[in-house]
Design a protein around this nucleic acid. Sequence first.
DNA 1: CTAGGACCTCTAGCCACTAGAGGATCAAGG
DNA 2: CCTTGATCCTCTAGTGGCTAGAGGTCCTAG
Lengths: 140, 140
Amino acid sequence: MNLPIGELSRRTGVKVPTIRFYEQIGLLSAPPRTEGNQRRYGKPEVERLNFIRHSRELGFEVEDIRELLEMAASPQASCHQADSIARNHLTEIDRRIASLSALRGELTRMVEECGHGRICDCRIIEVLADHGECVTEHAH
Amino acid sequence: MNLPIGELSRRTGVKVPTIRFYEQIGLLSAPPRTEGNQRRYGKPEVERLNFIRHSRELGFEVEDIRELLEMAASPQASCHQADSIARNHLTEIDRRIASLSALRGELTRMVEECGHGRICDCRIIEVLADHGECVTEHAH
DNA sequence: CTAGGACCTCTAGCCACTAGAGGATCAAGG
DNA sequence: CCTTGATCCTCTAGTGGCTAGAGGTCCTAG
């Protein structure tokens, strides 16, 4: 377990420059180096980085992850905070899903109603203009 | 209808600096100015900006919007292109909805299973660590 | 011992804004 | 007419979360 950065990258699915970036912003702490100044990582880093990757995949922002990592570092603490971070995130996700679903509906309708004729009959433009008229007639 | 930029902002929900930014990147064309060099907008700009805002909310990228606007500007053209932009986008939306729904499930489970106790028992941290152990034990 | 892959640092770029400095203009009230 | 203060102007720099590239060093297998 004396992994160079490329191996850490392979094991976690996080790209090499991203790992260095995480170190730079303090999400990962600076690992020991070889005599030749190359980073060497151990199991804790693999786990921490997996935690980070998974959190990012779930859409948590770096600041959230920072907090979650701090919490994880103090196991005797209460997890109310983690809970509230996750709950807030969930609300946000619900909001996004709702608006994407609305979008889906509109896009589907748009595509279906597109008669492959002229733009003025094309609902794509109309729908996105957010009103009943053809947007190309906006000059009068 | 000789709206200063703040009024355009109020009517479209797009922030003032963002309107100027859109002008800068050529998404909005430069409007006439007063003698004192202030921008004055008319109804076409309100509509165009609404179109842009709505498109952005629907997740279209600026380049997509640029294309759609160009199409809207030439109503004699076929809307095949708009159709294909929308279709591509639809695929992407479906992908996003699917992944957000999966995420939603995971987050919900996380939040529900959080025992509101100590971090070491907290499912949120555990799930994010992506393995069975308590992440706080990574150091030993 | 050498070749070439992996590593290093540093800077700059990406998207779509957002913030702030430092100053000019506009419209309403006195 | 003049002041006041809200709005406007331009310009530069910062945001988040990376990604790309230059130019150089190190490590390891043959």
